[in-house]
Design a protein around this nucleic acid. Structure first.
Length: 164
DNA sequence: CGCCAGATTGACT
DNA sequence: GTCAATCTGGCGG
């Protein structure tokens, strides 16, 4: 096992659509908008409130959108995560979008990289199947202008979900 | 170049 | 529960 590998299981995510979504960054201009229309499966990383947030570009042909990775359950490299975060409690390591990126050493340098290959330091693998009975949904967290549709998905009962 | 909103967090009452 | 520090990207001048 590679001591430098940092791994966690994604337990919480949110969907963001294109310009029709009032909370979407595709609504504004610039590089973020371009990225949301760009290659599906690319990491989309941007800063808010002094933190980095990890998204994966996801949309239909010709559309725009992304999935925000909000929370994870630490799997590998806990010691290094503790060092990066400066806390010991596993629940405060990767629980929350800003905490997750800090614990996993994710920053803007990984922006635009595809997450389905591992040759640049960041990748996502398929894990075990999660029965849909274990997936709960709610409205998005921290969004000032949310859609009426619940677009946050998380694993029911997981201790590593940011909000219950 | 300055202003300001924001998909957050941690400290505090 | 409340509140302010944080800093990047977008946008106006």
């Amino acid at each position: 096992m590679n001591a430098r590998r940092l791994a966690c299981k994604i337990v919480e995510a949110e969907a963001y659509y294109g310009p029709e979504d009032p909370a979407s960054r595709a609504r504004r201009g610039g590089d973020l908008r371009k990225a949301m229309y760009g290659d599906v499966g690319a990491a989309l990383i941007y800063g808010v409130h002094g933190r980095w947030l990890l998204n994966i570009v996801a949309h239909e042909e010709g559309g725009a959108g992304a999935v925000l990775i909000r929370s994870g359950e630490p799997v590998d490299g806990l010691d290094l995560m503790r060092k990066l975060r400066g806390v010991r409690d596993p629940r405060s390591l990767t629980t929350g979008p800003g905490r997750l990126t800090e614990a996993m050493a994710i920053d803007k340098s990984l922006h635009g990289k595809p997450v389905y290959t591992g040759d640049h330091g960041l990748w996502i693998e398929l894990g075990e199947d999660v029965p849909s009975s274990l997936v709960a949904r709610s409205r998005r967290v921290g969004v000032s202008k949310d859609l009426p549709t619940p677009l946050r998905f998380y694993i029911k009962g997981s201790l590593y979900v940011s909000r219950r």
